[in-house]
Design a protein around this nucleic acid. Structure first.
Lengths: 256, 256
DNA sequence: AAAATAGTGTCTCTGAGACACTATCTC
DNA sequence: GAGATAGTGTCTCAGAGACACTATTTT
């Protein structure tokens, strides 16, 4: 039945898109160590600078401008798979947390035609990005502090993609256990706290004592029995671990 | 500069998708009134039954099966705009809350080729759906109780789209003010409560007294001073209104 | 000892949720 | 009055957050 229907189906009845792409906003947390002071912890976004010239020697679209890494999706993969592949190709980064957060398909957003883009954000611990390198299409790869993004020339509609990504990651960090992707498997309360403080200034999270107490009561965080680390301070600190679970915290009640 | 780059750009270097579509999961809340008993309130999903035969008289793809309403996106519109347009065309429903919640692009998901789908969910008060009608491509339009969906033959990968939609709407109803789209501009606490109870059985929401008290303390809900209605009971009840605001309720704290 | 982070003792106050009750209307 | 929904009075208890303090390490 479907076979017969298929024979009669003519995809050229409809105009089809000129391209299907994936873009990736890669976030990391940079920790700037200082002598005898607490480190400055801030969230960074990775951007690539588009080459002026393509591999074929012709001028590149939006050459010279900064952009999210990304590229065309192939017919045998999903946009999410493409995002992983592109990120590996363009920056040498692999195997990280990646989440789709938006579709950008406004007519005219790309001068090359009807190009659809799926936007993803990725979260990586800083050390993973140390292996990064620029590739064919990119002149340079660099991390930017979120506050510094305003002063940068961005390609296409990437300004919009980026501000949406920041809003999305902010709410995911606070409303889901996404923070675990910025952290090692086992972490101290102050490490988790530092991550959260990059996106909020909630006093309940800011106060060390409150947060140290609170973490023990959270159902989705478990103590790593007996284990400690001295990496964050002179005094060894307890280690914690995220527990896999669905969390919905209704805005209408106090419970989880 | 971009002009010159554009001349050298050849979109045929990459294979392009065979189609770009929008699908819409339309939810409504059906309230079944009973004599001398509280009404049975349940969430319903609108599906269309695909015609066996196309307008051209040839067999239709996935004919006879139930599916989400939807169709091809045109080059001069976004997927979201297409979703609004399609819904109007296929069901006569217009001007409702609509939100994108997922991209479906798994190779092979559609027998017609490389077809991308953007999934949206829509929320409508029940009376808006009274004007619904079947159209060209649809043999029938019908509302299904969520529990009854298991026993239905669904087209393409719509089973997956639907279960994702249900998960999404559930968390949006509880974590955002999305519930307002099921309600009139001004509503009683019991009307809001009935909406929430279709997706949760949280005791704090279930208890009338608790909820009646709670609603007065919620920062995003405001009392409609002096106004009352008798539509839900013999005794006139106070009316409330949603206040526009961003809400993030961190899972790490008690505050909003 | 000084400095730094980790962590606890204790108090106060808010607010959730339970139970019992009152209020206002229709039939 | 019976029945239904709306809404309040009051109690108890958990837990948030603030403040002051102790603990454990390095230099």
């Amino acid at each position: 039945m479907n076979q017969e229907a298929l024979k009669n189906y003519d995809s050229s009845k409809y105009r089809t898109p000129d391209g299907y792409t994936s873009d990736i906003a890669v976030f990391t947390i940079h920790s700037e160590k200082r002598e005898h002071k607490p480190p400055i912890v801030s969230m960074m976004l990775m951007l690539i600078q588009r080459s002026e010239i393509t591999a074929e020697g012709t001028p590149n679209i939006e050459g010279g401008k900064w952009a999210l890494p990304g590229g065309f999706v192939q017919p045998d993969e999903t946009a999410l798979e493409a995002a992983h592949r592109e990120l590996l190709e363009e920056t040498g980064v692999r195997g990280i947390h990646m989440k789709h957060y938006g579709v950008y398909d406004r007519p005219g957003r790309d001068p090359r035609g009807w190009i659809l883009s799926n936007a993803h954000y990725a979260i990586v611990p800083e050390d993973v990005l140390n292996g990064r390198k620029a590739s064919d299409d990119a002149e340079d790869v660099q991390l930017f502090r979120l506050a510094d993004l305003k002063s940068i020339h961005l390609a296409f509609d990437h300004e919009e993609l980026i501000s949406d990504a920041i809003r999305e990651i902010r709410s995911d960090l606070l409303q889901t256990t996404a923070a675990k992707n910025f952290l090692p498997e086992e972490f101290t309360y102050s490490e988790l706290q530092a991550v959260l403080l990059t996106v909020t200034d909630d006093p309940a999270i800011k106060s060390e004592q409150s947060f140290a107490r609170k973490i023990k009561t959270l159902p989705f965080i478990q103590e790593a029995e007996g284990k400690t680390t001295a990496r964050t301070s002179k005094k060894p600190a307890k280690l914690y671990r995220f527990v896999e679970m669905d969390i919905i915290k209704p805005i209408y009640t106090a419970r989880y």
